Computed example of a mutant assay.
Amino acid sequence: MEQTWPIMSPNTHTQRVLDLARQKGTLRSRDLDEIGAPRVILTRLTTTGLLEKTGRGIYRLPDSQVSEHENLLAIATKVPQAVFCLLTALQFHELTTQLPRRIWIAMPRGSHTPKINYPPLKMVQFAGDSYAEGIEVVERDQVKLRIYCVAKTIADCFKHRNKIGLDVALEALKDAKAQKKASADELWRFAKICRVANVMRPYLEALE
């Protein structure tokens, strides 16, 4: 049976939308379905300055604190199946001095690149366990971010060393071991999953 909502005045809708934005931090247009508010309210609130639009279908309160992971939040909101990987995952785990100009995401083999104007994306396609294994779910500003764990990220960096540079992969490996962010067993497991065991073996042995 279709759910119906009581008729409410625009002012009531406005307050409920603002309350929802305050509660969620990042408000998506489809979130208004939860409270039965028409989406045109978002346009009115943006025009009057009570909300600000940070991306297509994404809003927040003007005085809300900007998250350091705001670009990741925007992508996670628009592309829930995306997994942050490679340079973006290294930066998230504080294992690189690189400042990537694009957000790196992994998608299942056969996926189309998401149509997002900003932030700029770099998509890689993984298949089977290479895509599904090692995903951590981290919540930031009430948005769930899917990101590969440290060991999986390092194995991916060796796998895609031609794209990001072997020096970046080696730096991440050394820092992860020094900071005890990944064990030898974890690194070896993902080296095999990503089919770079032979490539990583001498570097892993050198750090033992």
Rank of each mutant, 00 (worst) to 15 (best):
M200H: 04
R201M: 14
D63S: 14
R56N: 14
P202Q: 06
C149K: 02
D141T: 05
N117G: 14
A82V: 03
S183V: 01
W5D: 11
R39L: 02
L42Q: 00
A191H: 01
P62R: 13
L45A: 11
D141A: 04
S130R: 12
M107C: 04
L20F: 09
A132S: 04
H160M: 15
T113H: 14
P62Y: 13
I116D: 09
R189A: 00
P6I: 05
D31Q: 09
I58H: 06
A89W: 09
A169Y: 05
I103K: 06
N117Q: 15
H112M: 14
E68V: 13
T88D: 11
R189Y: 00
C157E: 01
C85D: 03
Q91L: 15
D185K: 11
K192M: 07
L20W: 05
L170A: 08
K174Q: 11
L32M: 10
T153M: 03
C149T: 01
V196W: 08
S130G: 10
V137W: 05
D167S: 07
Q3P: 08
L42R: 03
T88Q: 12
P114H: 12
L87G: 05
V168W: 06
E133D: 06
I105H: 01
R109N: 12
C194F: 10
E171T: 10
T113K: 15
F126C: 07
L207P: 00
V79Q: 10
D167F: 09
E205A: 09
I193A: 03
M1Y: 09
V124K: 00
E34H: 15
L173V: 01
H112P: 12
T43Y: 09
P120R: 11
I135Y: 04
C85A: 07
D19L: 15
A151K: 00
G25K: 03
P62Q: 13
Y148F: 02
I135S: 02
T88W: 10
L50M: 15
D175Y: 11
E133S: 08
P114A: 13
T113Q: 15
V150Q: 01
R201Q: 14
G25D: 05
L20V: 12
G57M: 08
Q3D: 10
V40G: 10
R30M: 12
D156I: 00
P10E: 02
D63A: 15
W104Y: 11
V199Y: 13
